[in-house]
Design a protein around this nucleic acid. Structure first.
Length: 418
DNA sequence: TCTGGGGTCCTAGGACCC
DNA sequence: TCTGGGGTCCTAGGACCC
């Protein structure tokens, strides 16, 4: 049996931890660059504010209803997430951190009543961290995801839903549209309509062989999972990424090559850092940039560049990314976004040398280790490449950012005793 | 003044080569 | 009735997730 624990309106709840006066009030959190709504408290949802709406379009409505607005504060959310995950690990020896606000727990063979166990998890996280969560339990990951949705939307569940019998999950499946299934998006749902599949139940009862042939093997697995047959195992160790991207919108539109280069240097550097964190090397990278797709004369270009040998050295990756930028840059355009992708990522241990290239030097390996160690100890940007620039005029907008309450000495909350 | 996220993986289609 | 290949690389864009 799997339990999926999912934080309710995660980012909004994080903000409410240090602003308790905002509990029970409408709160929204914006994406990077204050672009879209990415988290809404229950009260904000009730005002009819949709997920991923552009902020500037609904700003007047938010102000009118006195909604508390926050820019994304990932230092805070990352730290709170870490606390939640640490607490959850005490509830099961086998867990998978699925996203910043979700964790799968293996609860097979637990001697306790699973409904009560779920309530205990929920209460502990509220008492220790003030994070509200919902718990879904089922014999497969897909069913535990479905159970979690029920726990969130059906009041009688009181935040915990256990699907341990076929009649229970079938009852739910008949009442849910197929888009509620993990891995089925808008597009696939439309394709499934051709097979007369509208509800989750229709999909669960569909012919696996036909859909495997018509769609793919993952859909066959999903169907089995919906019938209580686990096909996706718990992944305690996250598998290494095959591609690593770092992309950002700029705070303002950029035309000047030197500024775009600075931004791309930062993205390439950050991607390299992620690459080293998973102990991999890369031999080809992609650089892209584009203007606003919401305006006329949309321009988007990308290029793939090869490194001479597999490496994880920020200096080489950044230098190549900058060549890429120069190759696709066209003067006169006002770019809104750029990004760097590391494409053929592979394990450092399988790094192959050839006759003419000795590969990354031991000196370079050592320097990168030192760089990562220093930044881990003294903050992410304690040491960085000169190409990344200091002024960062293109940095994203974050007009409504809360303090880094838990990760910066100067931002520690102060409690006043009366 | 002007505003529209980010990450990963996959696929379609075209260019080019043999 | 009508029939002309297959592989690789590159780029753009889509699908799905959070």
């Amino acid at each position: 049996m799997f339990a999926l624990v999912d934080c309710n309106s995660c980012y909004a709840s994080c903000e409410q931890i240090f602003r308790p006066e905002l509990r029970g009030k409408p709160v929204v959190v914006l994406s990077n660059n204050d672009g879209c709504i990415v988290a809404r408290s229950k009260e904000a949802k009730l005002l009819g504010i949709d997920d991923l709406q552009p902020f500037f379009k609904i700003e007047p409505i938010l102000k009118q209803h006195n909604v508390a607005i926050f820019s994304s504060n990932y230092a805070l959310y990352g730290d709170i997430s870490h606390r939640v995950m640490t607490t959850l690990k005490t509830f099961s020896p086998e867990v998978e951190v699925y996203s910043i606000d979700e964790m799968f727990l293996n609860v097979a063979g637990m001697p306790w009543n699973l409904k009560e166990y779920g309530q205990q998890i929920k209460q502990t996280l509220w008492q220790d961290i003030r994070m509200p969560v919902c718990v879904g339990v089922g014999p497969s990951k897909t069913l535990s995801k479905l159970a979690n949705r029920a726990a969130k939307s059906i009041t009688q569940c009181n935040g915990v839903c256990v699907l341990d019998q076929p009649h229970k999950w079938q009852w739910l499946q008949k009442r849910m549209p197929v888009t509620q299934v993990w891995g089925v998006g808008k597009r696939l749902a439309k394709r499934l309509q051709r097979f007369n599949i509208d509800t989750v139940y229709d999909l669960a009862q569909a012919n696996t062989k036909v859909l495997r042939r018509e769609v793919n093997v993952n859909l066959e697995r999903t169907i089995n999972e919906l019938n209580g047959i686990a096909c996706y195992p718990l992944e305690e160790q996250p598998s290494a990424k095959k591609q690593i991207y770092c992309t950002r919108s700029f705070g303002e539109k950029l035309s000047e090559l030197s500024l775009i280069k600075q931004a791309v240097a930062v993205y390439a550097s950050r991607a390299s850092q992620k690459l080293r964190a998973q102990k991999s090397v890369v031999q080809s990278i992609q650089v892209f940039m584009h203007t606003s797709p919401h305006q006329d004369n949309y321009v988007s270009r990308s290029v793939v560049c090869q490194l001479p040998y597999p490496t994880n050295d920020s200096r080489e990756i950044v230098a190549l990314a900058l060549q890429g930028v120069a190759a696709i840059y066209q003067p006169g355009n006002r770019y809104i976004k750029a990004g760097v992708g590391l494409l053929d990522v592979c394990d450092r241990r399988f790094n192959q040398f050839d006759l003419f290239n000795t590969g990354q030097s031991a000196h370079s390996e050592k320097l990168m280790q030192l760089l990562d160690k220093t930044n881990a100890r003294h903050g992410r940007n304690a040491v960085f490449l000169g190409a990344e620039g200091v002024a960062q005029k293109w940095a994203m907008r974050q007009q409504y950012k809360s303090p880094a309450y838990t990760t910066r000495w100067g931002d520690l909350p102060v409690i006043t005793m009366r």
